[in-house]
């Protein structure tokens, strides 16, 4: 394995903590959103897919201590990290509109893969609000698979678009000197801003 970038090692714990805290703040503010993958996606965008996936994996393992079912959904958070790294390489996070569209990609992982896990492990009826909605959909005639897919995709779309917007603004606020030290920083550095800033210095 290629030696990991020195700064990446220290950003992974931060990403994990931000996933945690983001989710907690969302709960405290009683938001109908998860907002618990901001760290995964940001680290993926800054450092690449593997570090992003690590953030996701460790987050779910840590959460599993107090909420063990999260271990079943570890693949989602790993997927978010990998996708963030891939999209970042393609320069998607440089433009807000592209970032928002990317939200659909994350929602498909979250909702699609998520509902598959729910169906495989929990017969489609997970322990949560989406499980409730799935149940409701079943009583009006949907199959359990369709019900789980619809409810989880919807919940994830609602979550991932704001999440991605937040990630976009976080990335935009990171100073160039920090970005310069990160594996994918060179993609994210906004050359107009750099030249503007140095003109100001000169």
């Amino acid at each position: 394995m290629k030696k990991m970038n020195k700064l990446t090692i220290f950003l992974i714990p931060i990403g994990i903590a931000v996933n945690f805290i983001g989710g907690q703040i969302a709960l405290l503010l009683k938001l109908p959103l998860y907002l618990d993958s901001i760290g995964t996606i940001t680290v993926g965008a800054l450092c690449g897919g593997i570090p992003g996936a690590l953030v996701g994996a460790i987050t779910n393992v840590s959460i599993s201590v107090t909420n063990p079912t999260s271990l079943a959904y570890i693949w989602l958070n790993i997927g978010f990290g990998l996708l963030a790294g891939y999209l970042s390489k393609k320069g998607v996070f440089k433009k807000l509109w592209k970032t928002v569209i990317a939200g659909f990609g994350f929602a498909i992982i979250g909702g699609g893969v998520g509902s598959m896990i729910t169906i495989l492990l929990f017969d489609g009826l997970g322990a949560g609000t989406t499980g409730m909605i799935t149940g409701m959909l079943m009583t009006i005639g949907f199959s359990v698979q369709a019900g789980a897919f619809i409810s989880e995709l919807f919940a994830d779309l609602l979550d991932k678009i704001p999440t991605l917007i937040i990630v976009f603004f976080i990335l935009k606020s990171i100073p160039v000197r920090t970005l310069a030290k990160l594996p994918l920083g060179h993609v994210l550095i906004d050359m107009d801003k750099v030249q503007g800033a140095s003109r100001k210095v000169a």
Partner: peptide, 23 residues
């Protein structure tokens, strides 16, 4: 929702800049 970013944003950005010092 609007109050979420002013809480998490500075927290995250501060931690990112600290991680450089930590390294």
């Amino acid at each position: 929702i609007k109050s979420f970013f002013p809480i998490l944003g500075p927290l995250f950005l501060g931690a990112i800049s600290n991680s450089e010092e930590k390294a």
